[in-house]
Design a protein around this nucleic acid. Structure first.
Length: 325
DNA sequence: ATCCAGGTTGCCA
DNA sequence: TGGCAACATGGA
């Protein structure tokens, strides 16, 4: 099976997939395997070109649009990244983050998948969220076959390798799992969900899955709401507060203004932007960030988050050294 | 071993 | 409004 080539300037695939906005992509050979909605996808980057291959889709749910357009939309290759970055506030903290995060894009995720994943994200490290996402997919999602890179010997594949149907072929089939629909999770018991290492989040995920499944919460229809109304609707869901709501708005509803404040961002805001005001209230940080970072605040936030998280060791060393003096 | 993680919720003053 | 503990689990 051939790889389709897609032009992808100003894009860093690996960094984007490792930036804590999406949690299911796995390294595989020279690229990554994951799923875009219901289709397993292999994607690798060669300079400013993406090479992609779609997996098999069930006969009853034919591909709605060409693979290249799906991928372009998913990775938000149409976002005017240069303009967005140019519009960031002009300060040294932002400048460092912008330089560090070249090519990082806010991708377009399916709404339910994003919502469910971030309900599971509270008080969890990124590595844990990955485990939970994978467990939910494996246990309750649907299997999709996809060809690995021909040969596949160098692949570091962490998912279940599939039985190879025909011996002696060059390409090797693997299985990737779609994210379970709300209807599927709504049928689960809380105990079953807890077995996916969800802990106390299981109750919230189950309750929200039932609301979405029943139609009481219509995620697609909410697309037309204003930012404030959308946020209010999301916050009504069990396990969704301001932070998760903002993540879902940013990563699934294209609300590029949404500015999620987690422990990392709060630390950045306090240490970098308000070093002399230790007592500043969280609420004031929220107001500040909405005004200061502006129209593309979500992008700015993601850059600050990724930069801080990737440099945690250097930062703490600096702080420790500074504290000694 | 101890700390901490892309938080939310209910309860208290 | 604002502070605070409970809530589960596993990586570093």
């Amino acid at each position: 099976m051939k790889l389709v080539e897609i032009s992808a300037p100003d894009f860093d695939l690996a960094m984007t997939l490792d930036s804590g906005q999406v949690f299911h992509w796995e390294e595989c050979g020279e690229g990554f395997v994951g799923a875009i909605a219901d289709m397993a996808v292999y994607v690798e980057q060669r300079g400013s070109v993406l090479k992609v291959r779609g997996g098999e889709t069930p006969a009853r749910s034919p591909r709605r649009r060409p693979l290249s357009r799906m991928v372009t939309s998913y990775f938000a290759l149409d976002h005017p990244l240069a303009e967005i970055c140019a519009a960031f506030p002009d300060d040294q903290i932002m400048e460092a983050a912008r330089n560090f995060c070249r090519g990082l894009r806010i991708i377009r995720q399916p709404k339910w998948e994003c919502l469910a994943t971030f309900i599971c994200s509270s008080m969890k490290q990124v590595a844990h969220i990955r485990q939970i996402s994978q467990a939910l997919r494996k246990r309750f999602g649907d299997a999709r076959k996809i060809d690995n890179e021909a040969g596949g010997s160098r692949a570091t594949w962490t998912s279940k390798p599939a039985r190879v149907d025909e011996p002696g072929v060059e390409s090797v089939k693997h299985v990737f799992y779609t994210f379970p629909r709300a209807q599927r999770l709504a049928q689960c018991s809380e105990k079953e969900l807890r077995e996916c290492a969800l802990g106390y989040r299981a109750r919230n995920l189950l309750a929200t899955a039932r609301l979405v499944s029943s139609g009481a919460a219509d995620l697609e229809a909410w697309s037309s709401l204003s930012d404030a109304d959308l946020r209010a609707k999301l916050c009504d869901l069990p396990g969704v507060g301001a932070k998760v709501a903002n993540c879902v708005m940013l990563f699934a509803y294209e609300r590029l203004r949404a500015f999620p404040i987690d422990v990392w961002i709060e630390r950045v805001l306090r240490q970098q932007y308000f070093p002399r005001n230790k007592k500043i209230a969280t609420e004031q940080l929220r107001t500040f960030s909405e005004n200061y970072f502006g129209e593309h605040g979500g992008y700015a936030q993601q850059y600050l988050f990724h930069h801080a998280r990737m440099n945690k060791n250097a930062k703490s060393r600096t702080c420790a050294a500074a504290a000694k003096k």
